[in-house]
């Protein structure tokens, strides 16, 4: 554990709390892509299967359980509790174009032909693109509530902080995970456009609006 990874994880936790807070206070999940949230459940469940057979640390265990539970809770909020505020007609990204290629990549690039290893790789690849339906929705509507942009910024910060974490681990442990690093770079890259608008508009007190 190093400070980059720790603050990355804290940022990830924060993003989830921000999202739940947004849904509760506005009593609405408007502007949130259900598809992206479903993908996150798939990411967490396939990656954290090792909860069943390996122990890393209490920290690791608690975080994994929290990520699975909170992501399922968000689906409940969107599909049951605040269902009328969820508008599937603007959430139109074709998820099969993400899941299919990620499954193929996981079969090619993994650390061993065991079901759990392939699913681990799959979850890493899928996480890197899981935000796309959300970003696509943002692009379509052209604007977002400020709180939603804070959610996305915290989520983007999480993977951005994992990059210095990997650099740190490379020098301190001689360790590098090519699958995680490649997918992580892609994932962070997807946020660059968003970050640009976030820093130049939202943090200057303006509304998040994309140029027409």
């Amino acid at each position: 554990m190093n400070i980059f990874r720790f603050f990355g994880d804290i940022s990830h936790l924060a993003s989830i709390f921000i999202l739940i807070h947004k849904i509760h206070t506005s009593r609405s999940c408007r502007g949130i892509s259900f598809k992206t949230q479903v993908l996150y459940v798939a990411v967490f469940v396939t990656r954290y299967l090792d909860l069943l057979y390996s122990w890393v640390s209490l920290y690791n265990f608690v975080m994994k359980v929290f990520f699975i539970a909170s992501s399922c809770y968000i689906l409940y909020l969107m599909k049951v509790r605040f269902r009328p505020t969820n508008d599937p007609s603007i959430d139109t990204f074709r998820v099969e174009y993400l899941v299919g290629p990620c499954a193929v990549l996981a079969l090619i690039f993994n650390y061993g032909y065991a079901v759990t290893e392939v699913l681990w790789s799959f979850s890493i690849f899928l996480e890197s693109v899981a935000i796309l339906p959300q970003l696509f929705m943002l692009q379509r509507t052209g604007e977002a509530e400020t709180i939603t942009t804070h959610y996305l910024a915290a989520l983007g910060a999480y993977r951005t902080l994992y990059i210095p974490n990997w650099i740190y681990r490379y020098f301190s442990e001689g360790y590098v995970d090519p699958i995680a690093v490649t997918a992580g770079l892609v994932q962070t890259g997807l946020y660059l456009d968003f970050f640009y608008v976030y820093f130049t508009k939202v943090l200057q007190g303006q509304k998040f609006e994309l140029p027409a």
């Binding site: 690791n60 994994k64 650390y111 681990w120 590098v176 995970d177 090519p178």
Partner: peptide
């Protein structure tokens, strides 16, 4: 687990 995989990360 491979020594070179981030299985200890979240």
């Amino acid at each position: 687990d491979s020594d070179f995989s981030a299985h200890d990360e979240l």
